[in-house]
Structures are given as structure tokens and as C-alpha cells.
């Protein structure tokens, strides 16, 4: 199977979808930011009774929280993006990329048939999928590109 066929066949659930954290609709903005900091996440899923109610990303932090007064103590529900675009875990990678592109989002929550959160599809998950396909070309590179030998000599 070529990488192109694989892009259209491999379901999202087989990728690394672990880059997110969960917060509750009862949390304040500061709680959510703190949780993102602790877990080093760029994205928080806002949930209520295990259901995804909204999404809050570091772009929201930058646009809606930074340099603003009073937002820090507000409920997360006032700044989150409600009813975010999601993908189902049996969607192909190609489909998910198209959704991301069409909706201009960088985080795509992945849910099961019954609506349970299974993960977060990000651009990085896709790049890692590619890297896994071409490990020799992508992983086996010098840590500093400018430090490779221009000529071969010696043993």
C-alpha cells in the first residue's frame, strides 16, 4: 500500500491523538490555562458529563485572555468555541485533513460513534505519521543541518 492509499484508508484512531487536556464547563479561564500549562497542552476540551461542549486553544488564550482584564476569573464557557468541528475515529487521515483545512482549525477532536472523546488530531499527528513512513529520510538526519560533512574523507 502506498502512502497515498494509506492516507485514505488508515483510520484516525491508529494515530497518536494524545495531545490535549480535559477541563469542565464549571472551570474558570484561569483553571483551564493552568491545566494546559501543567499538561503542556496547546488545547483543552471543555466537557460536561463526559460530553464535548467546546474547545479552548492557545490561540484563544492569545486572542481572548492575554492583555485583557477580568477574563481570568470568567467561566471557561464564555471564551471557548462551542460545538467545535469534530471527526469520528473511523474517518481516514485524508478526510480529517480536509476538515481541518476547510474549517481552518489546528485541533480536531476525535470522537467515537457514541460521542465519547477519543483524542485530538493535530498537524503534528499527521507529520509523525509521515515520518513513520519515511524514517530513514526524516528521522535519520543530523541534529544540526549545517553540521554535515561536505566531502567524504577518512575512514
Amino acid at each position: 500500500m502506498t502512502v497515498f492509499e494509506k492516507l485514505h484508508k488508515q483510520p484516525l484512531r491508529e494515530l497518536d491523538l494524545t495531545h490535549y487536556c480535559l477541563v469542565s464547563t464549571h472551570d474558570l479561564v484561569k483553571d483551564a490555562v493552568q491545566k494546559m500549562q501543567e499538561t503542556n497542552s496547546n488545547c483543552a476540551f471543555v466537557t460536561q458529563d463526559g460530553k464535548l461542549m467546546g474547545i479552548f486553544t492557545d490561540r484563544d488564550v492569545l486572542q481572548k485572555v492575554a492583555n485583557k482584564t477580568g477574563v481570568w476569573e470568567q467561566a471557561i464557557t464564555t471564551v471557548m468555541t462551542p460545538n467545535p468541528q469534530v471527526a469520528r475515529s473511523d474517518y481516514s487521515i485524508a478526510t480529517a485533513l480536509k476538515i481541518m483545512n476547510d474549517h481552518h482549525v489546528r485541533n480536531l477532536p476525535v470522537v467515537s460513534h457514541s460521542g465519547e472523546i477519543e483524542g485530538n488530531f493535530t498537524h503534528h499527528a499527521f507529520i509523525r505519521f509521515l515520518a513513520d513512513y519515511f524514517p530513514t529520510e526524516i528521522y535519520n538526519r543530523p541534529s544540526d543541518a549545517s553540521r554535515t560533512a561536505a566531502h567524504r574523507h577518512g575512514a
Binding site: 528521522y139 535519520n140 541534529s143 544540526d144 553540521r147 554535515t148 560533512a149
Partner: peptide, 27 residues
Amino acid sequence: SRRDFVSDQTIRWCPGCGDYAIISQVQ
């Protein structure tokens, strides 16, 4: 950061060598 562990020496491993992936992870 990992950059702090990268030296100024020219690397002499063959292109595509697995050693690159290993040193990247260590750094």
C-alpha cells in the same frame, strides 16, 4: 533545550544512518 547539547562539530556519519535518530533523541 536540545540545542544546548548540539556541538559545533561536523557530523561524519553516512546519510540515513540510524545513529542520527539516536543522537537526536538523546539531545
